[in-house]
Amino acid sequence: MQTIPINTYNSPTVILELIYRLKVKDVMTGSLISVPLGTTMRAVQHLMREKAITGVPVVLNKRLLGIVSMDDIIQALDFGYINDPVEQHMTTNLILLEEDMPVSFAINYFDRYRYHRFPVLNRHKELVGIVTTRDISTRLLWEINHEVENLERMNQSTRITDGLSRDVQTFSIMKHDFENAGFASTEIKKKLKLNKIFPRTIRRAAIASYELEMNIVVHSNGGHITAEFGPDEVTITSKDTGPGILNVDHAMEEGFSTANEWIRSLGFGAGMGLPNVRSVSDDFSITSDAEGTTVVSTIRFSDREIKQQAEEDVQHD
């Protein structure tokens, strides 16, 4: 049986995203109870009872020297050395975690080693916390609860026709949902293709909707993409629920990005998204505050394009 019954390589994407996004420092207990060298095993025994804990680190100048576990105390009582100082009997063969490791590491460690807790060090090798399976389970439950709330709120793509007999499609987009990213743009593209819109126009709409969709996935707390199909144009509106863009002018500059390393490693966050949307749009507007960001991109099925396409068709014939 696994200590924490979560598979760290092929669980649902939401879970994988969680256990890789959360760091050990996000789940560990940071307010540490530790003892200095020279403390007796007896004193540790009392401390454990008093604080209701089952393991106590031995520390010198923030450096971890060992851990006294409940088992060490039982041994000490059994063999009559309970009044000895901790340095003689503490466990020194320690498996350590670093605070910046993803939680998935900790989960693997609990499966691999039969310890109930792992000390956590920062990059200066100083002891900063302790992680127990309980710490991880509690935090994961809390996070999963949050994700389920999001899922419940997320309604499937809805299709309505407004009073002007324009087709309207709405798609809910969730934060960090790379799994379904591209769904809205693919649907919009399909719809335009069905309406026999010219490929070059479809391409522009696909670029605009894909970039806006990815922006919601990468940067926002979640939101919607709405596509309104008119006789002469398609209007794509992206609306999210925050946290807003600090400086919209910067965000419109090519190459400016606030994406983190993980996002960049996936090939996103190159600072091309919004500039790309603007360059393919006939009308473009963006407003942003802490409540959220709204981008409206209109792409017209222009005569110029129709003409161009016709000319190309003649050439191909």
């Binding site: 696909a206 970039e211 090939g267 190159a270 091309m272 998204g273 790309n276």
Partner: peptide, 9 residues
């Protein structure tokens, strides 16, 4: 290219 926005555009 490794930048998906670049590919897209």
């Amino acid at each position: 290219s490794d930048l998906l926005s670049d590919v897209m555009g």
